[in-house]
């Protein structure tokens, strides 16, 4: 599903949101619900970071256009109209990514796809915060997934075997 008009260049203040926005783009066709809530996370977080400077306001306004368009396109989807259903969708998707990467890790299969799955799981657990505070279990999953992604990435880069 195509989003609305493309976004302007990302202001430097929003650098921390670039991975969530890229995940949104990657899921436009694969899973528009994931795409929608990643953008919503970026929108909410961006407004907290800077909604006053002209370049940030312009960026957030375009991002809001995309969100409104997506909501219209997905109007009959329970995961969009009922946030409790949306929350379950994002949590299930994040845990599915996490479990895939964790199984690969435990089987000793280290590759780029599993690193990306760990990292994407951590980004989606960030996204889950649009619905409220994370549970202790999800906080632990997010911390572990982010650490694993970084650790295995560095091992592969340095030609070492992860432990």
């Amino acid at each position: 599903m195509a989003a609305a008009a493309p976004l302007p260049p990302l202001p430097p203040q929003f650098k921390s949101l670039q991975h969530h926005l890229r995940t949104a783009q990657e899921h436009d066709k694969r899973d528009p619900v994931v795409s929608y809530y990643c953008r919503l996370y970026a929108m909410q977080t961006g407004m907290k970071i800077d909604s006053k400077s002209p370049e940030c306001r312009k960026f957030l306004s375009k991002l809001m256009d995309q969100l409104e368009t997506l909501k219209k396109q997905l109007g009959d989807c329970d995961s969009i109209t009922q946030e409790i259903v949306g929350s379950a969708h994002i949590e299930n998707y994040a845990l599915k990514m996490f479990l895939y990467a964790d199984n690969e890790d435990r089987a000793g299969r280290f590759h780029k796809n599993m690193i990306k799955s760990f990292y994407t799981a951590s980004l989606l657990l960030d996204t889950l915060t649009v619905f409220g505070e994370l549970t202790e279990e999800n906080l632990q999953h997010r911390k572990y997934a982010r650490w694993k992604a970084t650790y295995i990435h560095n091992c592969l880069k340095n030609g070492e075997t992860p432990q």
Partner: peptide, 27 residues
């Protein structure tokens, strides 16, 4: 002009907040 600029920014910020609230059916 400084206060006018601040006022415009504040109005646009409010507009974004309102659009976000509408998007999430919180109004």
């Amino acid at each position: 002009t400084g206060s006018v600029g601040t006022s415009v920014a504040s109005t646009e910020q409010d507009e974004l907040s309102q659009r976000l609230a509408r998007l999430r059916d919180q109004v």
